[in-house]
């Protein structure tokens, strides 16, 4: 007698809410174009995610708040241009946040000279070490600093892929490319990140050649 093979139990509980998606998001976005309360609902759902994304990327509470505020302000101003395609409102919101993070790091990096960069690195390491010791390891700080040295396109790709909490497909939508293209870009970004991390000396400083402003001056 042939034994009956038992099928694996599949959880078909479709009513279980997805913590990463807002139910009825599309309709809520349509109402948010004219309804303040609808946009407030979207804001409350996505603010912790955007804030976390900015914090992981910057490692700074202030930067996270600034980026979060700028992200939602831009979203509100440009909501009439939003077209519900590819990743939806969440992907669109993370794209804005990623651009804001790139702008922030570009502005900060532009004001840094070689000496200032070294001092900043020391200050960040020493200042955050007592407060965030339990949350962020030193290696994470080094990786975060290495991210700021990548090309803006690579920074954005790695941030959306690893720090936003989006799926690969959602990250690709937020980046504005296909999933396969996103994979290629992420791969190149990782190689570039690796190169920068390998250049950091044991003291945690980047080589002088990686500071264009310093070499130019």
């Amino acid at each position: 007698m042939q034994a009956v093979q038992s099928l694996p139990v599949v959880d078909f509980d479709l009513d279980r809410p997805d913590p990463n998606h807002l139910p009825g998001e599309a309709a809520l976005v349509e109402r948010a174009r004219i309804d303040t309360q609808a946009f407030a609902d979207l804001y409350r759902f996505y603010l912790p995610r955007i804030h976390a994304f900015a914090f992981r990327r910057s490692g700074s509470k202030e930067v996270a708040e600034d980026v979060s505020a700028a992200t939602f302000e831009n979203a509100l101003k440009n909501l009439h241009r939003f077209e519900p395609r590819g990743g939806g409102f969440g992907a669109w919101l993370f794209r804005i946040a990623a651009n804001q993070l790139n702008d922030h790091h570009r502005k900060v990096g532009r004001t840094r000279g070689e000496r200032g960069q070294r001092a900043m690195a020391n200050m960040i390491g020493r200042a955050e070490e007592p407060d965030e010791a339990a949350l962020v390891s030193e290696s994470q700080t080094i990786v975060r600093e290495a991210l700021t040295k990548l090309a803006p396109r690579y920074q954005k790709a790695l941030s959306l892929r690893y720090l936003s909490g989006l799926s690969n497909e959602e990250a690709a939508d937020a980046f504005g490319v296909s999933r396969s293209t996103m994979a290629v870009i992420v791969h190149r970004s990782l190689k570039s990140l690796k190169k920068h991390l390998d250049g950091i000396d044991s003291d945690g400083f980047l080589p002088v050649d990686d500071y264009p402003e310093a070499t130019a001056s």
Binding site: A40, F72, E73, S139
Partner: peptide, 26 residues
């Protein structure tokens, strides 16, 4: 490294900041 950084615990946004930003958006 990046996966660990992305899964690291992050503090929630400050409630005062969240309320202030919501009022600002309104």
């Amino acid at each position: 490294h990046l996966t660990a950084l992305g899964s690291s615990a992050v503090p929630d946004p400050d409630a005062a900041f969240a309320d202030h930003l919501e009022l600002q958006l309104r």
